[in-house]
Write a protein that binds this DNA or RNA. Sequence first.
DNA 1: CATTTTTATACCCGAAAAGGTATAAAAACA
DNA 2: TGTTTTTATACCTTTTCGGGTATAAAAATG
Lengths: 80, 80
Amino acid sequence: MQEWNRHNAIADFVRNRRKKSDLTQIELADVTGVGLRFVRELEQGKPNLMTDKINQILLFFGHTLTPTPISDETRRNMGA
Amino acid sequence: MQEWNRHNAIADFVRNRRKKSDLTQIELADVTGVGLRFVRELEQGKPNLMTDKINQILLFFGHTLTPTPISDETRRNMGA
DNA sequence: CATTTTTATACCCGAAAAGGTATAAAAACA
DNA sequence: TGTTTTTATACCTTTTCGGGTATAAAAATG
């Protein structure tokens, strides 16, 4: 199995935005409609996730999964 | 089941880049190491896909999946 | 036109994700 | 310190993705 990387673009984004919004994992799961376990595995950096579940969460923060150049990976979404 | 949307950011990106590279779906599957069926389902806009499989393909084009703000372009393809 | 190449749809199966929940660990707080 | 809140880990079940392959449709090529 691939190793979990807690610090990847998606996990970091969700964790940071969630905390900025003063939400617990439970609240985020509740408001986005995904399972609590999914929120946790996502933030822990589980490598294999379903795109539509991720988008369910990202949509709450006004974002979505898109292909981006690798060089821009870190820079692109640090705003907001 | 969710409807397939052939024209989403990921599907369009892969289809366009593949054609620019003059590759068939078979060749892209072969060179990226993912199954042929996956390439087809991705380009057809299957909503539920595994992130690491997508990234296997995007990596070949120097890209990766990241959360990006919902722009007019992405919102245009969200239906309704 | 016919023929070849490429893409799309359908089927079965194994593997793994996602959900729910219980419990343990950690963090926040008084 | 002790208490409460939040987060992390573990187990089990159901669901479904992804691979492989066969076939059909569509597109390209002569």
